[in-house]
Design a protein around this nucleic acid. Sequence first.
DNA 1: GACAGACTAACGAACGATAGTTAGTTTCGG
DNA 2: CCGAAACTAACTATCGTTCGTTAGTCTGTC
Lengths: 240, 240
Amino acid sequence: MPRTKETGRLGDETPALDGKSPAALAVTTRERIVAVAAELFHRQGYSATTMRQIATGVGIKAASLYNHFPSKQELLFRISYDTMVEMHAAVLDAMAGVVEPEERLRAFVGAHTKYCIVERYRARVADELRDLEPDNLREVVAMRDRYEGVLRRILDDMNEATDGAVRDVAVTANAVATMASQVSAWYRDGGRLGPEEIADLYAELAVGAALGSRAQRTRAERTPAALSGKGETGAGSADG
Amino acid sequence: MPRTKETGRLGDETPALDGKSPAALAVTTRERIVAVAAELFHRQGYSATTMRQIATGVGIKAASLYNHFPSKQELLFRISYDTMVEMHAAVLDAMAGVVEPEERLRAFVGAHTKYCIVERYRARVADELRDLEPDNLREVVAMRDRYEGVLRRILDDMNEATDGAVRDVAVTANAVATMASQVSAWYRDGGRLGPEEIADLYAELAVGAALGSRAQRTRAERTPAALSGKGETGAGSADG
DNA sequence: GACAGACTAACGAACGATAGTTAGTTTCGG
DNA sequence: CCGAAACTAACTATCGTTCGTTAGTCTGTC
């Protein structure tokens, strides 16, 4: 490691690193790069973020970034892909051992929401697929599709268990997934509720949305509307 | 109007304009610029879109864009602001004359969702506030806050009418608003359901989320959880 | 009705700034 | 004392924007 400046000591010549951001807590330079890049990509978008900004945030020069990542695009891909994997794992872990469909939905949405709050920079970057180059895009989309398949299966099970209370599985799956992912669009630290509490609320919102109120259900029986939408990606297709 | 090339005739030297995009239907050059820019901003993001790309899409050169807009930023602002105004008007129109809170929620979410589908390019650009410069941002955010206040008031009314069935008004408002806005993230033309049908489904999802299922409500009475969250922006604050 | 002048909207060319990236060199830690 | 990882310096490409110009069109006056 060069330069007398140690990774642990901050605030001397490092212009960024406010101390509270996750970048300050990261140990290795590589981890700090990822953390800083995620925050900047989140705040400014990929294209509007420069390698020099990332470098300044980490406390090094732009050229030094290339000792850790071969390109800006690869940096974006690693953030997106690793986040997708991590989120998937967190959700599967939360659902482990839970068998009742409605409880599985709670576990899924709760864990997903919580992850999207706690890791909100990464999560938002991973949700923005537009800047990924074709090959990288394919890989991340495949990951995401597998992930959303889990949700669709839960809703299918709920539909079966409740004799068709879910009005349209495909649309509901998309709606619930986007709702939970976008929690990071409005969440801010220091608010009235913490991540856990919001995650619990979101889980209940999802259950309510999926099953509907009793009034809705009786109304639906009277006027049969859309079918259950089983076995389709959505009303449209996925994005490419 | 210069150049023998008339605005109405297309496809001679204009390299873009595939005929099906809204840009092809626009009459004036200014309208076509807005339509092309909205689609490109949506697909690639603001920073990744160049003035030369927009110009090519319209069928003119980059320099000519400045006869219609003083800057790229102003172009973004006009798209964002006008869309916000239009959407607000569409939703208020749909709610006109509807008094029952639950029906007002249906009207709000239905109209909002439908607009976000039909005008999905514009709507997604207007939802991306990160590229707006401070002054422009303030104006659009003010517009949006007024808009979301309407939703919060509806949920407050529902809460009163149902003796507290809405678990947390602030969180629910944010969740419903983001859910509906993000419908454009997955909708594609030619799918199983059209805009109207999806909008209706979303309205029901919102009602279900807001009121919850009967099972949820009895469960909530046993274990009093979060308060109703009245009079606050959310669990965090809004963005700035 | 004709014609001078203002206006609109297009063009090609170019400018300054800055982007991602590379090459070559220096500097410590193990 | 070797190599990982930092540095300085520079290259090339492209960006938003400006400039000077030109062709067509509207407007008002005689």
